Simulated assay, not measured.
Amino acid sequence: MIDLVIEARKAAISEAVMVRRILPFRLRRMVGPFIFMDHAGPIAQVPANPSSLDVLPHPHIGLSTVSYLFGGQVTHRDSLGVEQVIRPGEVNWMTAGSGIAHSERFEDPAALAGGLEMIQTWVALPEKDEEAMPSFRNYGAGELPVFTDKGIWMRQIAGEAYGLSSPVATSSPLFYLHVLLEPGARFGVPGGYTERAAYVVKGSVEVAGTLYRPGTMLCFGPGNDPVITSREGATVMLLGGEPLGERFIWWNFVSSRKERIEQAKEDWKQGRILLPPSDNHDFIPLPDDHSRPAGTAPRPEPLS
């Protein structure tokens, strides 16, 4: 029923923010086009210095970043001059394409008082779109389809599933949903896709008699029709889609070509990827590059 179980591990994305990192995983680099997934929070107590939560300007290529909040708020700024506050239930979809830099700032302590919690994923781009012009779009919670049934509530963040279709513009077949389950609720994972996964955010779920708790991703193959049961209530993120082929990932760069990663490193060092015009006083420098042949040295942890 389950192809692979991934247990999240800890990673730091800023001075005060530790995340649970789910993707990439050594035995499963991607689920459909999803190549990265972080779960930040919940952070119940705001630090005395809220700016210690900030993620400074940093670059991306070859992917779309997808930010989704359960609590708190974040201010996004990027090279295009976009400044956007994202709140729970909204979607920030930034396509890096040929190259973009952005920051994530936590500038309103009052908005964090109820707790900060967010999921960020990266969606790799098809080869034909890897060098597309960068773009950004915020989608309000009211723009995204919501479905309810007995004991089930779900929001269609992106793609198509269960007969729902999100207005979020995507580059390849995928689905991404936020699901709330009441105790005893049962539902099946979306069909029609080659790769599918369920990530447990809160509570617990049961599949084929085994209980899975927060911080766990369950990966399913195309021939399985698993039923997920919530015993005590749960929050689950469902995601998947069609594979795009091999992708290389180093720090915040994703590409189908190793040499493109090397170019992006040099572009960031030389300032050829512009900083956000309203947030250009500091940035995250390129990590020390200790690259060796694959499998002989760890790579720097990506940032969100």
Results as ranks from 00 to 15, higher is better:
2 I>C: 13
4 L>V: 10
6 I>F: 03
7 E>H: 08
10 K>H: 09
10 K>R: 10
14 S>T: 13
17 V>D: 13
21 R>V: 03
21 R>L: 02
23 L>M: 03
25 F>R: 01
29 R>F: 09
29 R>K: 15
30 M>Q: 12
30 M>H: 14
31 V>K: 02
36 F>V: 04
38 D>N: 07
43 I>V: 11
43 I>C: 03
44 A>L: 14
45 Q>L: 14
47 P>A: 06
49 N>F: 07
51 S>P: 00
51 S>A: 14
54 D>Y: 07
56 L>C: 06
57 P>I: 00
57 P>C: 08
64 S>T: 15
65 T>Q: 12
67 S>I: 01
69 L>R: 02
70 F>L: 11
71 G>I: 09
71 G>Y: 13
78 D>L: 04
81 G>R: 05
84 Q>V: 10
85 V>G: 07
90 E>M: 08
91 V>E: 06
91 V>K: 01
93 W>M: 03
95 T>K: 12
97 G>N: 03
101 A>C: 12
102 H>R: 04
104 E>T: 00
105 R>E: 09
108 D>A: 05
114 G>T: 12
115 G>C: 09
116 L>C: 01
116 L>V: 03
120 Q>D: 06
120 Q>S: 08
121 T>Q: 05
124 A>E: 00
124 A>V: 00
124 A>G: 13
126 P>L: 14
126 P>I: 03
128 K>H: 14
130 E>R: 13
133 M>A: 14
134 P>V: 13
140 G>A: 11
144 L>W: 13
148 T>C: 13
156 Q>E: 15
157 I>W: 01
158 A>F: 01
162 Y>T: 08
163 G>E: 03
163 G>D: 06
166 S>N: 11
169 A>Q: 13
177 L>V: 07
177 L>M: 08
179 V>G: 09
179 V>N: 09
182 E>G: 01
183 P>E: 11
184 G>R: 06
185 A>F: 15
187 F>D: 09
189 V>A: 05
189 V>C: 12
191 G>A: 07
191 G>D: 00
193 Y>S: 09
194 T>Y: 11
195 E>K: 07
196 R>Q: 10
196 R>P: 01
199 Y>N: 07
204 S>L: 02
205 V>D: 08
206 E>W: 08
209 G>E: 01
212 Y>L: 02
213 R>K: 15
216 T>W: 05
217 M>T: 00
218 L>A: 05
219 C>I: 10
221 G>D: 07
221 G>Y: 13
221 G>Q: 05
229 T>D: 12
237 M>D: 02
241 G>W: 09
242 E>G: 12
242 E>N: 12
243 P>W: 01
245 G>L: 01
248 F>L: 02
252 N>E: 11
257 R>L: 15
260 R>E: 15
263 Q>A: 15
265 K>P: 07
269 K>P: 00
273 I>Y: 05
274 L>W: 04
276 P>L: 02
276 P>N: 09
276 P>K: 06
282 D>C: 07
284 I>H: 14
290 H>T: 03
297 A>I: 05
299 R>N: 06
301 E>K: 07
302 P>K: 10
